[in-house]
Simulated assay, not measured.
Amino acid sequence: MAKNFIQTGETLTVIAPYDVLSGAGVLVGKLFGIAQIDAKSGEEVEITRRGVFEHAKTSGQAWTQGADIYWDDAGKVFTTASSSNTLVAKAALAAANPSAIGRVVLNG
């Protein structure tokens, strides 16, 4: 291991930009992850930046496996809509329209 190595970066401590619950998406600048604990805005929270997660999605969208998935920070859901959203994942599985939950693999 290089002497300047700090950590793998799969889990990272960030300052919560808003109140979050464990399992919720968290976007800090361009860093995205899933909260591991509940945290109030301004508190430290650990986020997981890699892995496969089930999470709320835009219900009125059909997803194909491998599709680019974006984080809609205003709606706090995953979406295939790129406009004003941040690319954070790929669709791990296809998802029907309508469906409230999608499975994603984070880009981390």
Results as ranks from 00 to 15, higher is better:
residue 1 M to V: 13
residue 2 A to L: 14
residue 3 K to A: 10
residue 5 F to T: 11
residue 5 F to H: 11
residue 6 I to S: 11
residue 7 Q to F: 10
residue 7 Q to G: 10
residue 7 Q to P: 01
residue 7 Q to H: 12
residue 8 T to I: 05
residue 8 T to S: 12
residue 9 G to D: 04
residue 9 G to H: 10
residue 9 G to Q: 09
residue 11 T to C: 09
residue 13 T to W: 00
residue 13 T to F: 05
residue 13 T to N: 09
residue 14 V to Y: 03
residue 15 I to G: 01
residue 15 I to Y: 00
residue 15 I to R: 11
residue 15 I to W: 00
residue 16 A to E: 07
residue 17 P to H: 01
residue 17 P to L: 00
residue 17 P to Q: 02
residue 18 Y to G: 00
residue 18 Y to T: 04
residue 19 D to F: 02
residue 19 D to P: 02
residue 20 V to I: 09
residue 22 S to I: 04
residue 22 S to F: 01
residue 23 G to Q: 06
residue 23 G to F: 05
residue 23 G to P: 11
residue 24 A to K: 06
residue 25 G to T: 08
residue 25 G to K: 07
residue 26 V to W: 03
residue 27 L to Q: 14
residue 28 V to W: 08
residue 29 G to D: 09
residue 29 G to M: 10
residue 30 K to L: 06
residue 30 K to V: 05
residue 31 L to G: 01
residue 32 F to L: 08
residue 32 F to H: 05
residue 32 F to T: 07
residue 34 I to D: 10
residue 35 A to Y: 04
residue 35 A to T: 11
residue 35 A to C: 12
residue 35 A to Q: 12
residue 38 D to C: 10
residue 39 A to D: 07
residue 41 S to N: 10
residue 42 G to L: 11
residue 43 E to Q: 15
residue 43 E to W: 01
residue 43 E to L: 07
residue 44 E to M: 08
residue 46 E to D: 14
residue 46 E to F: 04
residue 48 T to M: 10
residue 49 R to G: 00
residue 49 R to V: 09
residue 49 R to Q: 09
residue 50 R to M: 13
residue 51 G to S: 13
residue 52 V to Q: 09
residue 53 F to W: 09
residue 53 F to H: 02
residue 54 E to K: 13
residue 54 E to S: 12
residue 54 E to T: 11
residue 55 H to Q: 07
residue 56 A to V: 06
residue 58 T to M: 02
residue 60 G to I: 07
residue 63 W to Y: 09
residue 63 W to I: 00
residue 63 W to G: 02
residue 64 T to F: 02
residue 64 T to L: 07
residue 64 T to A: 12
residue 64 T to M: 02
residue 65 Q to W: 01
residue 65 Q to D: 03
residue 65 Q to M: 08
residue 67 A to M: 08
residue 67 A to H: 01
residue 68 D to C: 00
residue 69 I to V: 15
residue 69 I to M: 03
residue 70 Y to C: 03
residue 70 Y to S: 03
residue 70 Y to R: 04
residue 71 W to Y: 15
residue 71 W to F: 15
residue 72 D to V: 11
residue 74 A to E: 12
residue 75 G to M: 13
residue 76 K to D: 13
residue 76 K to T: 09
residue 76 K to Y: 02
residue 76 K to N: 14
residue 77 V to R: 04
residue 78 F to G: 15
residue 78 F to D: 14
residue 78 F to W: 12
residue 78 F to C: 15
residue 80 T to K: 15
residue 80 T to L: 15
residue 80 T to H: 09
residue 81 A to H: 02
residue 81 A to N: 01
residue 82 S to T: 10
residue 82 S to K: 05
residue 82 S to L: 05
residue 82 S to P: 14
residue 83 S to W: 08
residue 83 S to K: 04
residue 83 S to V: 13
residue 84 S to C: 03
residue 85 N to L: 05
residue 85 N to E: 06
residue 85 N to F: 10
residue 86 T to A: 01
residue 87 L to E: 03
residue 87 L to Q: 03
residue 87 L to H: 05
residue 89 A to P: 05
residue 89 A to I: 04
residue 93 L to Y: 02
residue 94 A to T: 12
residue 94 A to R: 04
residue 95 A to E: 00
residue 96 A to L: 14
residue 97 N to R: 13
residue 97 N to K: 14
residue 97 N to Y: 04
residue 98 P to A: 13
residue 99 S to Q: 14
residue 100 A to N: 13
residue 100 A to E: 12
residue 101 I to Y: 05
residue 101 I to C: 04
residue 103 R to G: 02
residue 103 R to L: 12
residue 103 R to P: 06
residue 104 V to D: 05
residue 105 V to W: 00
residue 107 N to T: 05
residue 107 N to G: 02
residue 107 N to C: 03
residue 108 G to S: 04
